[in-house]
Amino acid sequence: MSETAIRIRELTKTYGSHRAVAGLDLDVHTGEVFALLGPNGAGKTTTVEILEGFRDRDGGEVSVLGTDPHGAGRAWRDRIGIVLQTSGGLDLLTPREALRSTARCYATPRDVDEVIEATGLGAKADDRITGLSGGQRRRLDVALGIVGRPELLFLDEPTTGFDPQARRDFWELIRGLAQGGTTILLTTHYLDEAEHLADRVGVIAGGRLLALDTPAALGGRQSQEATVSWEEDGTRRSVRTGTPTTEVASLAARFGGEVPELTVTRPSLEDTYLGLIAPHVTTERQEVPA
């Protein structure tokens, strides 16, 4: 198996005069969970749809599992799984029926009952899909995406509209898949989702890659100053420092033990992300007349 699941070089795609993807370079390694982040209109969906073989590119090279997705055949589709952003149709079937029929299209499908179990659809497996909740419906989408035992799974904004518990459960499911060796390309608007799931994060805006790193290190987060704050004489005090451990130690010494209401925070992934995309979001707004 190749080390690189997805390889993108100088990818371009233009709609009319709008350059949706403007020379994108990106590698996704085999076995990793890669999150693609970016504001609306950044070129995320276009890029992913080119990778899925749904859309043609204007220029550049793309290789997905060693094959150019443009015009790739059944053998290639057999190795990938796609969880689409919009999820509709199938209303008149039951999850079991939809999964069985989908599984038959693949050469080495997973066992349908196992997939139902793994996605927590057991109680609803024989009910009409119309009656599923949003979260259950999304689980079914994932079930349909993985029933073919894909090497590479595309997950497009999988948890939009989930309640917090449903999102946590969903993340567990995705982590399980990743541990089983599935390469996952995730697009999401939720920074905490990327932080929880992704091995690496790529931020794109204006059709280009702005940053690429682990969630913890993205945009130099690790080296940025931390904020240490605590409660003293009834007021909140805080200090920004490059050496938070020393700061906390000296505070502990001063208080003779516990520091009241102590917190140490670094800029969140969301802060870093918003900082990264800020210039691009502004230019875009200036370009588009109201």
Partner: peptide, 19 residues
């Protein structure tokens, strides 16, 4: 089926269009 994404969903699988 085209509007609700059923066709796109089918296209994402290795099902031959003829089927």
């Amino acid at each position: 089926e085209r509007d609700d994404g059923t066709l796109k969903r089918l296209r994402a699988t290795p099902m031959p269009p003829a089927a």
